[in-house]
Design a protein around this nucleic acid. Structure first.
Lengths: 114, 114
DNA sequence: TTCATATTTCCATAATTATAGAAATATGAA
DNA sequence: TTCATATTTCTATAATTATGGAAATATGAA
C-alpha cells in the first residue's frame, strides 16, 4: 500500500461517524448493511451519510452493490489488512533490526448467520 | 484502547505531515529526533511543526523530553500497538466467529546504532 | 403509466483544521 | 548579565471538512 492510499484510509477512519459506520459494517460481515439500515443505526441524515460513505468508498474501505432499490455496503477486509500492514511495515523500515515486526494477522469477514 | 482515543490516534496519523513525522520518529528508534531536526527533515515552519507535534502528543503517539535547549521526540510504540490492537480487536467483535483475528504482532523501538 | 421508496447530487452554511508571522519563554554559553 | 539558540504560544487567515435541505435520479410495484 502506498502512503497516499494509507493516508486516505486513515482519514476515512479518523472521523467519529465514519469509524462507527466502518465498525458496523465489519461486524455485519459478508451480508453487509443497506444504506438505509446504516441511516437508522447512525441517525445521520441521508445526504450526510452519503458523503461519509463516499469518503469510505474512495479510500477503498467500503464496497457496495446495488440490489434492486437497496444499496448494500460491505467492509473491505483486504484494504483493512493492507492498512494494518502498512502501519507495521513502516515500523521497522530502514532500521538495523529490520523485520522486528511480523506481518499483522489478517482479519476475515465473518460468515452470515443462517 | 477506547474508541475516543483510537479516534485521536487515527486523526493524528491522518495528515500528510504528521504521518511523515511519525514515521521519521519510528525509524529514528530509541534515540528519537529533536524538534529542530524534524523541522529540517520536513521543511515545516516552527509554529506549524509545533502544532502538528501537539496533536501527535495529545493522541499519545509521540512523547518528548527536554535535553537542555533541545526537545527530543520519540514515537510511542505502546500507543501504536494499542491502536493496531483496537483496529483488529473490533474486527470480529460480536461475531459468531469471535477471535477469528489474532492479536497484532507488537512493534518495538529499534536500538540506537552505536 | 403513476407512485412510493432508496439513494445520490447540488448547494449553502457552519465548524474545524492547517498554516505561519511575530512575540514570548526556556535554556545554556560567553 | 547579555546574547544566541530552541521551541512554544498567540493570533489571524486560508483551506478543508461536516452537515443537511431540497431537488434529482434509480428502481420496482401497482
Amino acid at each position: 500500500m502506498k502512503s497516499k492510499i494509507a493516508l486516505a484510509c486513515l482519514n476515512a477512519l479518523a472521523q467519529e461517524h465514519r469509524l462507527n459506520i466502518f465498525r458496523l459494517l465489519v461486524q455485519a460481515g459478508e451480508t453487509g448493511m443497506a444504506v438505509g439500515e446504516l441511516a437508522g443505526a447512525t441517525g445521520l441524515a441521508g445526504a450526510t451519510l452519503t458523503n461519509h460513505l463516499h469518503i469510505l468508498r474512495r479510500a477503498g474501505m467500503v464496497s457496495d452493490e446495488r440490489q434492486g432499490r437497496v444499496i448494500q455496503c460491505r467492509a473491505n477486509y483486504q484494504q483493512m489488512n493492507a492498512l494494518l500492514g502498512f502501519l507495521t511495515e513502516n515500523c521497522c523500515a530502514d532500521s538495523a533490526d529490520a523485520g522486528c515486526c511480523d506481518p499483522v494477522t489478517v482479519c476475515k469477514p465473518t460468515r452470515r448467520k443462517i
